[in-house]
Amino acid sequence: MRKRFVLRFGQLLLWGLLLAAAVQAQPLTAPDRQPAVQPITPPPSMGLGLPLPQAQIDRFSITIFPDGRNLPPGQGSVAQGARLYQAQCAACHGDTGIEGPAARLAGSDGFFGWSDPLRVLRIRSNPLLVVSVGARWPYATTLFDYVRRAMPHHAPKSLTDEAVYALTAYLLHLNDLVPSTAVMNREALLRVSMPGLAKTVSAWPTQP
């Protein structure tokens, strides 16, 4: 009698546990937490970094800031830039900077333009043609920064600083932002006003 009771109680307990386990295994939607990347207080320093000498910093500081920081000495004219453009840039960016196939350098931002009736077809195969440098970029310093570090595409950093100033002058002229007689150097570049700046809104607060 007692044995049967124990057996019965044991069976009930087992079923109860199994049921509890089954219920526990249900939630497929329970969110799983990943631990935070780092603890609240900064960890003690590992101290494995080696000193970075100033000479190496100077060698690698190619970021040009909107306030002109890191702009090198030198100058270049629109006329010089026009010659360089035909030799180094037109093959990819087109004769007037809008034909592509590489990114559009001039012209209005958007699909339609009376000057280029084939634009819609071009954009279907090369979406980069939608975006225009002159219409969208907020600072002229970025033109200098990018041409110097990345262009031409197949031989980046092969241009002299003077050539980059000249090409920058020409690209600004292609966008009707400087006259054909303009000469770009550090000071002149900082005086150029780009239409994209006034239209800029930031999704991240850029002022403290």
């Binding site: 800031f65 980069l128 990018y146």
Partner: peptide, 25 residues
């Protein structure tokens, strides 16, 4: 300050319906 690199100037920006250019989204 941000450097406004090429990929914060043209690509990787959005033009809103009112013509404003949204950056750093």
């Amino acid at each position: 300050q941000p450097a406004y690199t090429k990929d914060e100037s043209g690509l990787y920006t959005q033009v809103l319906d009112n013509g404003q250019i949204e950056r750093f989204a």
